[in-house]
């Protein structure tokens, strides 16, 4: 800490000497430490709250257990973990190409006015509360998907495609497919804005060099721009995935909340956040502990993915700036 020399002819309160700076910095540090403490407290509280469930079933027994039966007081996390991973992965796969496309189009092709409209649209998509996506998914999207699913299942029934029926599951409109579509819409802005930023950071000389070699516009993008921006694109994809992992309200409203494996394409399923909301109401003792333990699992999953994305962004910026 570089302290200032005391003012000449000091007549002020001691606050105007090094003492004041020390108090100020100490106050800032206190607040900073509180912020750090919050995250540590989160991890600690969730682990402590879940310790009863971890102790009862063993760490692996809890993580790998496929039964979630509040009546028998047996709790296993596997259906929730697998449901979370499948919906989030599927959402990010679905979101990948549109997100990259809008990022490329906004930076490379769109005139300035259209670019800023797209930018604002992405900001709006990210800003809309997740309950509103849930409401839309529940009351608008699910009925549409239900009729589509019913016609597909009817077709499969008429043609005796039993294997297909087993994959499709009941066409109720609330389930995996609906949740994945809603999630994909919600994660696109996250993936797209990071991709957009990193594409915009690619130096103009990189593009000009490729043009000078006779490349078409698409070849410039494919060979000169995208390889340069791939770190940011990857980080955006991971951030989008992380966002999907923890998405709660939109998912719980449309996924149907069923924790019996195996999950089917159209049939209802569940995720960790959805089940925490859904089972919370009547939770006591061991069940509450199991829910907090689920929260801890989500904390670890989401935390690791966040750190991974941050690490990629950092590495990219060190290499990418020059």
């Amino acid at each position: 800490m570089a302290s200032q020399p005391p003012p000449i002819g000091a007549r002020q309160s001691p606050l105007y000497r090094a003492f004041g700076d020390r108090i100020f910095l100490a106050a800032l540090l206190l607040f900073g430490l509180i912020v750090i403490g919050i995250v540590i407290l989160m991890g600690w509280q969730l682990a402590a709250g879940g310790s009863q469930a971890f102790a009862q079933f063993g760490l692996l027994g809890f993580l790998g257990g496929v039964t979630w039966d509040p009546v028998a007081d047996i709790y296993g996390a596997w259906p929730f973990i697998i449901g979370t991973l499948i919906t989030s992965l599927a959402a990010i796969v679905l979101a990948f190409f549109p997100a990259i496309a809008v990022a490329i189009y906004a930076v490379e092709y769109a005139p300035r006015w259209l670019g800023s409209i797209l930018q604002y649209a992405l900001e709006l998509l990210a800003a809309l509360p997740s309950v509103i996506y849930g409401l839309w998914g529940l009351l608008v999207l699910a009925p549409i998907l239900r009729s589509q699913q019913q016609s597909i299942v009817t077709w499969a029934l008429e043609n005796q495609q039993d294997w297909l029926l087993a994959i499709l599951g009941p066409p109720i409109g609330f389930g995996m497919t609906t949740a994945v579509i809603v999630l994909a819409v919600m994660v696109i802005p996250y993936a797209a804005s990071l991709a957009k930023d990193s594409i915009a950071l690619v130096p103009g000389a990189q593009r000009e060099a490729a043009y000078a070699l006779g490349a078409t516009k698409w070849e410039v993008i494919k060979n000169a721009v995208l390889p340069y921006a791939k770190g940011g694109i990857l980080a955006g994809i991971i951030l989008g995935f992380t966002r999907a992992l923890g998405e709660t309200m939109a998912v719980v409203m449309v996924i149907g909340n069923n924790n019996n494996l195996p999950f089917t394409l159209f049939g209802s399923a569940t995720t960790i956040p959805a089940s925490i909301i859904n089972e919370f109401g009547e939770a006591m003792d061991l069940k509450l502990s199991a829910l907090l333990a689920l929260g801890f699992v989500l904390f670890i999953m989401s935390g690791l993915m966040n750190l991974l994305a941050a690490w990629i962004v950092k590495r990219m910026s060190v290499e990418g700036r020059l």
Binding site: L41, Q45, S302
Partner: peptide
Amino acid sequence: LRTISDLLNGLPALLKGLVIYA
């Protein structure tokens, strides 16, 4: 502080409610 703050920003809001609950 910078890393932890970004991490906190990325953690699900649900967990922030759950920890206050606990």
